[in-house]
């Protein structure tokens, strides 16, 4: 462990980009902790978080592309879905991450697209909802993941989009927010997924924007950080869930961006790099990504711009000619104007 010295940059006002890059590329080289072993099933998501964070810091070339793609393809199952790791079952969550990783490596052509599309399409239920895998759990997270994945693959037309919207709207609460299933309490993470799904399906008109915007902006606490539900404590991951939702509905200026920036910076680990959930906690790749993504969305530190819905660098989506009417930094937004 290094000791603090007086030459060190003040991490409460500066972004420790180099340290974060080091932190991420060393994640797989470190001594393997117990945590490493019990999170084996999350590796696909982990790679997406780390890789995207690097991409936002213009450092994606630090990763071994070929090796990672080989590993990624080894996680695909005969049914077309991807597991969280080799020898782990397929699930929508890991399938989306795999696709998002391939987009960033400009390698979607490595994929048997029809088999993945077929896998996802089969998970839509009659009421429009999606189950996460063949075992049947329903959640609006899975609606979003399915819709986002299909959009990246250019096959949204294969599902019943009206029904998908109908189900998401059944999960809407009076406060403008959304829950995991009909009747569930509004939650910022869930709101991100529902707003994102509606954005991709071009149905932002079904959102109660001012009501939702108010609920979301109330997530900012006096310490600058954001919580995920009323009267909960702040956590860096909401710098993504809340900020992206506000951005998609064009209400990002309803919170104090500078204060949130300072909160995220305080959560940086000035020794090892990486970002933690709260100041003084242990960093991890999940919060590192969400912290950096939040900073990118708010336009700080010359980071590569991230799209609030697809959670990928905007420039890559422009390359795929994906329409981003909500995204002022996108070519397509300019074209639509």
């Amino acid at each position: 462990m290094t000791t603090t010295n007086s030459n060190e940059v003040d991490h409460t006002t500066n972004m420790l980009k180099d340290k974060h890059v080091e932190y991420i590329i060393n994640l797989d080289k470190k001594e393997k902790s117990f945590e490493y072993w019990v999170t084996e099933h999350l590796r696909m998501n982990g790679l997406y978080w780390g890789l995207t964070a690097l991409n936002l810091m213009n450092s994606i070339d630090k990763m071994n592309k070929q090796e990672l793609i080989d590993w990624l393809l080894s996680c695909q199952k005969p049914n077309g879905g991807f597991g969280g790791n080799t020898h782990h079952d397929d699930h929508l969550l890991s399938t989306l991450s795999a696709i998002q990783i391939l987009v960033q490596f400009d390698s979607l052509d490595k994929l048997d697209i029809d088999s993945v599309v077929n896998y996802i399409v089969k998970l839509q239920q009659e009421d429009g909802s999606f189950i996460g895998d063949q075992y049947g759990e329903v959640d609006t997270r899975f609606s979003f993941v399915a819709i986002l994945a299909l959009s990246l693959l250019g096959h949204l037309d294969k599902i019943n989009q009206d029904k998908a919207v109908e189900f998401i709207n059944k999960c809407k609460n009076f406060d403008g927010g959304y829950g995991s299933i009909p009747g569930a309490e509004s939650h910022a993470g869930q709101i991100y997924t529902c707003v994102g799904a509606l954005a991709i399906l071009n149905r932002l008109d079904t959102i109660d924007i001012d009501n939702l915007g108010w609920w979301l902006c109330e997530r900012q606490l006096p310490n600058g950080g954001l919580n995920g539900r009323p009267e909960k404590s702040s956590d860096v991951c909401y710098s993504w869930w809340v900020v992206s939702s506000l951005s998609t509905i064009d209400r990002l200026d309803w919170i104090d961006n500078d204060k949130l920036k300072t909160y995220i910076l305080k959560c940086q680990d000035n020794e090892t790099g990486g970002v933690a959930d709260k100041p003084g906690d242990m960093p991890d790749v999940f919060h590192t990504f969400f912290g950096i993504a939040g900073l990118s969305l708010m336009g700080y530190f010359d980071l590569e711009h991230i799209d609030p819905v697809y959670a990928l660098p905007t420039k890559l989506l422009d390359k795929l000619n994906i329409n981003l009417p909500w995204n002022k930094k996108s070519k397509s937004f300019a074209a639509n104007k």
Partner: peptide
Amino acid sequence: MHGVLKVRTTEEKAKAARILELKKIEEYN
């Protein structure tokens, strides 16, 4: 990882903790 406070530790303590952790990993695996 949520709410895991970063604690300063001595090299000696870290070594001892690592030995315990390795045992835990072996059992789990």
